[in-house]
């Protein structure tokens, strides 16, 4: 694992840039632990101040310092993304390895459900869920729901890799030496699918964060929790653009785009590392 990351940072410029971008945003989010104000307090600073030396990112119409506000927002948004990724990874690894290694009817049943989940229209479902739960829809519930919806593509990918591993020499050795299927799956096969897990986890974060922003912008989440989405919602709600408080929108948009591009570069470089065909192409293109 560490060898992979070392190789990537050394030879893959996309990976390095991605690390830097994501790193900056993460540091910014971590700064919220040292924030002088709480995230929900309003009218603590003069409202509508443009970015300046005392307020780096300006202040918003609700009298909040945008620097700290956004720091909280990114902390929540990143936590949310990691939660969804973790939940959906657990499901996709389990389903993928079980289906790939055990095969037979287990595979058929799991892939049947997989196909159903693949075809679910997630965004409308989330809207309906909000319609029912309203402001009870907190971040954790949303993460749980999205985690339970966002696994099927990755499970299929892991399954296909694990199918290939089943016929390899070392699996047969392990089986003959009496290892239990569980041990084989988690000790022998899991390390092989780890790079894929990592790459898909990051892609999954892009997806879930994008979804959260979208829902929040429409006002379909709990609007009292500062996230990137709710920040934009409030900016919109206060007609920030029309009254000229452009930094309230522009700064979060720049930061979130930075995060997206950073994460995206990470998946691209990891995928390239995983896919031997793109490796060949890279050599061929020289």
């Amino acid at each position: 694992m560490f060898a992979i990351i070392r190789d990537l940072t050394r030879y893959n410029i996309e990976f390095a840039i991605g690390c830097v971008l994501v790193g900056i945003i993460t540091l910014f989010a971590l700064a919220s632990f040292f924030a002088p104000v709480g995230p929900t307090m309003i009218y603590v600073v003069p409202p509508d101040m443009p970015p300046s030396l005392s307020y780096w990112f300006g202040t918003n119409s609700r009298g909040q310092d945008l620097f700290w506000q956004l720091s909280y927002a990114f902390r929540n948004t990143l936590t949310f993304g990691v939660m969804v990724a973790a939940i959906s990874r657990i499901i996709s690894i389990t389903v993928g390895l079980l289906a790939g290694y055990l095969g037979g009817w287990v595979d058929r049943v799991l892939m049947f459900f997989n196909d159903i989940f693949v075809s679910l229209p997630i965004f409308p479902i989330l809207i309906l869920v909000y319609f029912v739960l309203r402001s009870n829809l907190d971040m954790f519930t949303l993460a749980l729901i999205m985690g339970c919806l966002g696994w099927p593509f990755d499970a299929r990918l892991i399954r296909s890799v694990s199918l290939g591993l089943r016929h390899r020499e070392f699996t047969r050795h392990a089986t003959f030496s009496g290892m239990t299927p569980r041990k084989i799956m988690f000790e022998e096969h899991l390390p092989y699918v780890m790079p894929i897990v990592l790459a898909t986890a990051i892609a999954n974060m892009i997806w879930s964060i994008g979804m959260e922003v979208t829902l929040a912008v429409l006002g379909f989440t709990n609007l009292n929790i500062p996230t990137v989405g709710t920040t934009l919602y409030w900016a919109n709600n206060h007609s920030a653009m029309i009254v000229g408080v452009w930094w309230w929108i522009l700064i979060p948009v720049i930061l979130i785009v930075t995060l997206f591009i950073g994460l995206f570069l990470l998946t691209v470089s990891l995928n390239e590392y995983i896919d031997p065909r793109s490796r060949l192409r890279r050599m061929g293109g020289a």
């Binding site: 190789d7 050394r10 030879y11 893959n12 590392y273 490796r279 890279r282 050599m283 020289a286």
Partner: peptide, 10 residues
């Protein structure tokens, strides 16, 4: 003489 020449990740 024809060779496959490859350079990847160092």
């Amino acid at each position: 003489k024809a060779y496959y020449r490859m350079a990847y990740f160092g």
